[in-house]
Design a protein around this nucleic acid. Sequence first.
DNA 1: TATTGTTATACTCTATAACTATA
DNA 2: TATAGTTATAGAGTATAACAATA
Lengths: 151, 151
Amino acid sequence: MTESADIESVGELRRWVTRLYLALRRHSPSDELTAANSSAIATLLDHGPMRMGEFAERESIRLPSATALIDSLVRKGQVQRSADPDDRRAVLVELTAHGRELVAEARIKRDVALTTAFESLSPEHQAALLAATPALAALHAQLGKPPINNA
Amino acid sequence: MTESADIESVGELRRWVTRLYLALRRHSPSDELTAANSSAIATLLDHGPMRMGEFAERESIRLPSATALIDSLVRKGQVQRSADPDDRRAVLVELTAHGRELVAEARIKRDVALTTAFESLSPEHQAALLAATPALAALHAQLGKPPINNA
DNA sequence: TATTGTTATACTCTATAACTATA
DNA sequence: TATAGTTATAGAGTATAACAATA
């Protein structure tokens, strides 16, 4: 039965992930932090000081985009750059104390919004979403590798 | 048990949806269609000719954004506008024949890539993802409304 | 020379405000 | 007046290409 994982079903999954992502991006209920900012800050919160290159890699964006993104967070006083003692070409980025506080609050606020929507779903749908979370992570991990070789 | 839908779990879900979307975008083998374009076209494909207002509503965007989005698809020859016979203020938007072909191909191409990753998952994960698809749609529908009232 | 990051520039997607044409 | 849509303009987030500084 695995001969075809039902490309239609997988496509349907993809379309809803896309639409949900777009809807989430629009919603940003925290006026201080956009979706991209939040993702960036979550990365810095979870993985500590890191170089621009590593940051760009983790966020799956290019270096110039990372520069711009970090710039905007520095302007807001949430992130700071510092010199890498081991390599004077490199830059270390990390949250400021103010950034850390604000982030924790913002993360909660945004998830509250999503949780409100979530709670209005049927118990079956809620359960299905929670059950799917590790599977989404696994699918992401598969896509993270170079699974598609367009030679 | 519903007293709190576990904000941590919902946040986790949100983060994986975001990451998966970004990974999908990286892989997008269709250079012709961006994510927003694909969503727009899927809507037109699935729900036929509709007025700009309905299109904007379905995509959860404002009318000027819909105008711009449709403009870009018209320029690529994938969508066409026509007059609404019942109301001369209104405009009907629909896929062109060329749009319909191209969409079907692009959809398949992209979904093949995703399906490859999908098939490498455990049967449990595969099942969880398929089971979650309608729930993702429901969550999207909830977010489409004005669920967040920061009054 | 190769690597790390920034600057310059442009494209996509979104928004609000002001406008046009029709109802 | 009210409604359907467009135009004008702006901001966020992304990219590629060219550059500077350091290794």
